[in-house]
Design a binder for these strands. Structure first.
Lengths: 163, 163
DNA sequence: TATTGTTATACTCTATAACTATA
DNA sequence: TATAGTTATAGAGTATAACAATA
């Protein structure tokens, strides 16, 4: 209304010059754009519909924490228990992980990675690295370390406030 | 197998002491956890099923770029054109935005926010700020600026490599 | 009584493909 | 011929609630 001379009634879509407006301060918006791109690109790279999203994360966590329970896994990946059941079904169907009964608490599954799973994990990890290679190339070591540090801080806060 | 003394055959799920393993280097994993939490918390705060996800982003972008086309919007939010159609249907049903025919190219919609939309945007922005208040509180000004800077760098890279 | 995992189910979100109207 | 937007549709992904076994 008080705009002096801006004829930009209709922004040119080809310039890519778009104002983020109110979104400039919103972390969630920036995070989501990156996440969308990364997850889509990752799915394209593996290009197997029997490897569902979350399978890489789950396999990595099982590998690093042998005997992990499904509940603990669900908390770590941020999905519901029921969703984790489906993920583990996939994982067992692939022969990459297995459920054993916990000795201390027979309600629990003790999750373990298999030999095949270890091989698959290597491949998935390589895919993930390749998927993020451009990012690593664009950031200095210091910047990467700083980014991870800040992201961890943010993540910690997310679960610190029970609000 | 060669583990000397660790009886940690089954990690205690209550300690929260879980090893990220291979995931430690993966940006995508860290981003996703945060995004999951943030989007879920945001949805809980607005608590209106007629306000679909993406509506806040879309409204903010339309507000900041009057006359924006749907294609440009779809590129910016990272969704398909068809998905953006549904978002705009919601937006118009809410009376928060409207489609006008572009004068220069009659195939295009020129998107504009309404008076009600401006009010709603204020509320949504406040919700987003509240949703991220804990994060802002935990980070210094410098850290926030640095985080945004790094995230922008990452985002730029995502679309720089056509790979 | 509370918790682990399971099943069945329904719902939300998103993309694909075919169509139209403009260019 | 190519692009902007639309429609119809199918599919992926996730959560909810009720249940069984165990604690």
């Amino acid at each position: 209304m008080a705009k002096a001379d801006g004829p930009a009634q209709e922004p040119d879509p080809d310039t890519g010059e778009i104002d983020l407006g109110v979104l400039k301060d919103v972390i969630g918006f920036r995070i989501r754009r990156i996440q969308n791109h990364l997850s889509r690109a990752f799915a394209e790279r593996i290009d197997r519909k029997d490897v569902r999203p979350g399978v890489f994360s789950a396999l990595a966590l099982i590998s690093a924490n042998p005997g992990l329970s499904q509940t603990a896994l669900s908390r770590e990946v941020g999905f519901d228990k029921a969703t984790v059941v489906a993920m583990l079904d996939s994982l067992e169907r692939l022969g990459w992980a297995e459920r054993r009964r916990s000795k201390h608490d027979r309600r629990r599954s003790a999750l373990h990675i298999t030999a095949d799973g270890k091989k698959a994990l290597k491949g998935l990890r390589a895919t993930a690295v390749a998927n993020e290679a451009a990012i690593h190339a664009a950031l200095t070591e210091d910047e990467q370390a700083r980014l991870f540090e800040l992201l961890d801080k943010v993540y910690a806060v997310c679960f610190a406030d029970p609000e």
